[in-house]
């Protein structure tokens, strides 16, 4: 029960933040990526702002054994830089630049994104379903050392 309430509250903060920061406006996202056009620095402020409470939370995490609901906290991050991380991130970035949407804002604008958003979401979900096949294809193409 508490777990579900926490998820709803966390999601609400996330959704409110994406909305008031203007991150569901694709021109602001593409404006930030467009360094040779009319550059819009808003996204840097959003990222910077988000880092502050999150960095504090990681400091608190270091002093704790479990989460509030008693589940284990995330372990130390992996340091493995593999081809999946690079190739996946480059693919994601291309899609992000192309229309100015990433997964969070695509959900935040669910009620006002119109038909185009549904097309994007359908394609994104399809992409997520086929991702394991693409990954195994990639593993065969470029075997890990």
């Amino acid at each position: 029960m508490l777990r579900h309430l926490i998820a709803l509250i966390a999601g609400s903060f996330f959704g409110a933040g994406l909305f008031v920061s203007g991150m569901t406006d694709t021109t602001k996202v593409q404006g930030w990526l467009d360094v040779f056009g009319n550059w819009d620095p808003t996204l840097a402020f959003v990222m910077g702002g988000a880092m502050i409470p999150m960095a504090l939370a990681w400091l608190v995490r270091a002093r704790r054994q479990t989460s509030l609901i008693g589940t284990p906290l995330p372990p130390k991050p992996s340091t493995k830089i593999d081809k999946n991380l690079i190739i996946g991130s480059v693919m994601f970035g291309m899609g992000w630049g192309l229309v100015g949407l990433c997964p969070g804002p695509s959900i935040a604008s669910l009620t006002y994104g119109g038909a185009g958003l549904y097309a994007f979401l359908a394609a994104m979900i399809t992409g997520m379903v086929v991702a394991p096949f693409v990954r195994s294809r990639l593993d065969r193409l470029v075997p890990a050392e």
Binding site: A10, G49, A57, T66, S67
Partner: peptide, 20 residues
């Protein structure tokens, strides 16, 4: 943007410390 970012980060902090 900064205010929205703080809200986003707060959501992340709640999810991390609340649910792990």
């Amino acid at each position: 943007g900064l205010i929205g970012g703080l809200l986003i980060g707060t959501g992340g902090a709640i999810y991390l410390l609340g649910n792990g």
